[in-house]
């Protein structure tokens, strides 16, 4: 019962978060230089045409009234129509969402499949060659900008080797390079986090006790040390997934993936407020839900964590 209460409480807490984020974005976009009506009609538009379009878009109303009206419509599922492209922004968002989701999912999957085992190896082989190699590559991946890594990967895998497509979507192969590019930094973070926390656990008394009792090394690492060291890693996974969902703009641009990152970028560039607000509200909601799920997993992994208490 306390778990249900906790979830309800967290869901209610999302409401002020949504209002805060959407109001902030709305104000920033509305107060930034540039009249959307003039941008749509062009530099040489006549004042009467601009005025007519401003009226049509509701730009002549006071700022907070406009925001309120938008949010009221949004609550009823109407996130508006793109000022430039005239499509329903929510439909377009959900049309593009799977591409971003798969990109974020595969990038995180790579970070788990590669980052965590390699981090474990580094911790177990502490101060040995394997640890040095892992440390070196994690620093390399952390410090390499995603777009640079992506462009090098395109040259190598698309032109020179011809193994993978350089752009677009349509198959799993299309996502490999973008996911590795975007996941490079997360792989490195997972390697470092796993290594650090596992080392901390390995040095703990309960691990020493387990060894003293004659438990096999593999069992000591997997069942005793790892379980405790995984909490910060799981926290990181949630944060990383959220960051991936909201931070795909560069990768999507480099690999020409029609996802929500490039969608938001287009909206910001053209001051197309319905596109940006719709995207931000839905992403914020998803991030809030992902964090809630992570907290629930927390409680499952660590019995000491009591949700709602």
């Amino acid at each position: 019962m306390s778990m249900v209460k906790y979830i309800l409480k967290r869901l209610l807490m999302l409401i002020p978060v949504m209002v805060g984020i959407s109001l902030f974005i709305y104000l920033v976009l509305s107060l930034a230089p540039g009249d959307p009506a003039r941008m749509i009609l062009g530099m040489d538009a006549l004042p009467e045409d601009i005025e007519a379009l401003r009226e049509e878009l509701g730009l002549n109303k006071p700022l907070l009234i406009r925001y309120g009206l938008y949010m009221w419509d949004a609550l009823h599922g109407d996130f508006g129509t793109s000022w430039y492209q005239r499509f329903d922004v929510a439909s377009e968002f959900f049309h593009r969402l799977p591409n971003t989701f798969w990109l974020a999912f595969i990038a995180n999957a790579f970070s788990i499949i590669i980052g965590i085992p390699v981090g474990i190896i580094a911790a177990v082989r502490h101060n040995k060659p394997a640890d040095y190699v892992v440390t070196f590559f994690s620093l390399l991946l952390c410090s390499a900008p995603g777009f640079w890594l992506g462009m090098l990967a395109q040259l190598l895998f698309c032109i020179r080797l011809g193994w993978l497509p350089s752009s677009g979507v349509g198959s799993f192969a299309h996502f490999i390079l973008p996911a590795l590019t975007m996941g490079g930094g997360i792989i490195a973070i997972n390697m470092r986090t796993t290594r650090t926390w596992l080392l901390d656990s390995i040095r703990s008394d309960y691990v020493r006790t387990a060894r003293a009792k004659g438990a096999r090394e593999g069992r000591v690492i997997v069942h005793h040390a790892m379980r405790n060291s995984m909490l910060p890693v799981i926290t990181g996974l949630g944060m990383n997934f959220a960051a991936c969902m909201a931070g795909t703009a560069v990768t999507e641009t480099v690999f020409a993936i029609p996802g929500i990152g490039s969608f938001i970028t287009t909206g910001v560039k053209t001051k197309d407020i319905p596109i940006v607000l719709c995207s931000v509200i839905i992403i914020a909601l998803m991030v809030g839900l992902v964090n809630l799920i992570v907290d629930i997993i927390y409680a499952v992994v660590d019995p000491r964590v009591k949700l709602g208490s």
């Binding site: 462009m151 395109q154 040259l155 698309c158 032109i159 011809g162 350089s166 752009s167 020409a256 490039s262």
Partner: peptide
């Protein structure tokens, strides 16, 4: 017709035959 906004990607795609 495929929208590819990044110049580098356009040319990689041309050279790789995409």
């Amino acid at each position: 017709v495929r929208p590819i906004s990044n110049v580098n990607t356009q040319f990689v795609a041309l050279q790789s035959g995409e």
